[in-house]
Amino acid sequence: MKLRYRSPSGGGTLELDDAATVSQLLAALRTSTGFTDVIVKYGWPPRALNGTDQASATLQSLGLQRESLTVVPDESAASVAETRAAENIADAYAREAATKGVKDQNISVPLPENNSRLVLRVMPDDNSCLFTAVGGALRGLEPHHASGTQPSGDYTPAALRRLVVEHILSQPDKFTEVVLEMAPERYCARMQQPDVWGGAIELGILSELFRVEICAVDVKTGSVFRYGEGLGYELRCVLVYSNIHYDRIAEIFVEGQEEMDFDVTRWPVSSADGSSTPMGDYVLVRAQELCRKLKDEHHYYTDTSDFVVMCNQCGWVGQGQKALAKHSLETGHTEISEIEDTT
């Protein structure tokens, strides 16, 4: 029996006996992919093999001889610990970048179309930066289609996390285990923890709930990731994404203004008469300009896939998030410095 599979490390084929069992398949995949443990998905919609209950079942009895399998590493306790360690250390780089002066310099660019300036509002590095950044742009708005206790209009990270979780649980057909890459109940339990990061799923949900287009400008590439685009939303807010951290873009009318209560954080997606360029488009262009300034002048981003780091405690040098997490777990060392590319 020949089986095809695909995995994060690439595709491949396996030659197994016609009477092979699920247990034998899993063992062969672990050997072939190099993963300590694996989750195997098959069929449509994709469902996972149960290595415990189905261990002795033959592949033919499950019809797997006709399937192309998807293989992913199992999220074991060790891999969760590695990811958390890497996230915590990587987040320290965002703090280091901020302490180099970005937070205190009130980084801004002119917005001549409105005789004002766009400024970077740096969010706290507490693993809830996405929710803090978005929350500050949603002040005064009310969520749509949300159940449970409603926030008052002042949106803390905890309040936004609750709204996201309620939304996920209210639409089980949409937010399935396949979409969330884990059981929805588990995903929601994790998302309510203050040290768990939010991402694209959360931005999409918040955009839908508040009917606001959310744009995140990537510092390294200048690309704009849009959530809620083309859905007829009237307003847009803009975030800055540095790969491990989210900040907020605000418009100010007094240069050097530090008081955020007077910030403008939402702009029209389209012009009132449909003939002129909407202010939201001007803001996006200037936000990209601000991100180029952050990249070129302040190196305000971290590429966790290829950064080179050194351990200040033992002198170890490694590259990438995975190597960094492994070193931290094995040694307990956390005093890490990034070796910046000077070429």
Rank of each mutant, 00 (worst) to 15 (best):
Q193D: 14
T132R: 15
K174M: 04
R211Q: 15
E181S: 14
P124V: 00
I168V: 13
R161V: 12
L203M: 11
A158V: 04
L169M: 12
F210G: 06
P172T: 02
R211G: 11
I168G: 10
Q192K: 13
R211L: 12
S152F: 01
F175K: 02
P112I: 07
T176D: 02
R117E: 06
V119R: 12
E185Y: 01
V164M: 13
L206N: 07
R186A: 12
T176P: 01
H167L: 05
Q171M: 09
F131T: 03
S116R: 09
Q171F: 03
E181M: 14
R121S: 01
S170L: 08
I205V: 14
S207I: 00
I201W: 04
F210H: 05
E113G: 13
S207Y: 06
D154E: 15
R162M: 14
G148R: 13
A137W: 09
E185A: 09
N127V: 03
D154H: 15
A159K: 15
P184I: 01
N114M: 13
R186W: 05
R190K: 14
V122M: 12
P172E: 01
W197L: 09
V212H: 12
G153C: 08
I168T: 01
S207H: 10
A200D: 14
T176E: 01
L141P: 00
Q193C: 11
M182T: 02
A200N: 14
E142G: 00
S128A: 05
R162S: 15
A146P: 04
G135T: 00
D126H: 04
S147K: 08
W197Q: 03
P184S: 02
E181C: 14
R211P: 12
D195R: 13
P143E: 06
P184V: 02
W197H: 05
G135W: 02
F131W: 02
E208L: 13
L120M: 04
Y155E: 10
V122Y: 11
T176L: 09
E166V: 03
D154S: 15
L169H: 03
H145C: 07
V179E: 02
A183V: 00
S116N: 08
P124H: 00
A183E: 10
P151N: 06
H145P: 00
K174S: 10
D125C: 02
A133H: 07
T132G: 11
I168E: 11
G198K: 01
H144A: 05
C129S: 11
P194M: 05
P143N: 11
G136F: 06
T176C: 06
L163R: 02
R162T: 12
G148P: 07
E202D: 12
C188S: 08
D125I: 10
I201H: 09
W197G: 00
D126Y: 02
E177D: 09
T176G: 02
E202M: 07
L120H: 06
L138A: 04
L141K: 00
P172G: 06
G148Y: 04
A137D: 11
R161Q: 15
A158P: 10
G140I: 01
P124S: 01
V212P: 07
V165Q: 07
D154I: 13
E166T: 01
L180Y: 06
P157L: 15
G148K: 10
F175Y: 15
S147Q: 08
V178L: 09
R211W: 06
D195K: 12
P124W: 00
L209W: 04
S147W: 01
L118W: 07
E113Y: 10
Q150D: 08
E181R: 15
D126K: 05
G198T: 10
M182H: 00
G135Y: 08
Q150S: 13
Q192C: 13
E208Y: 13
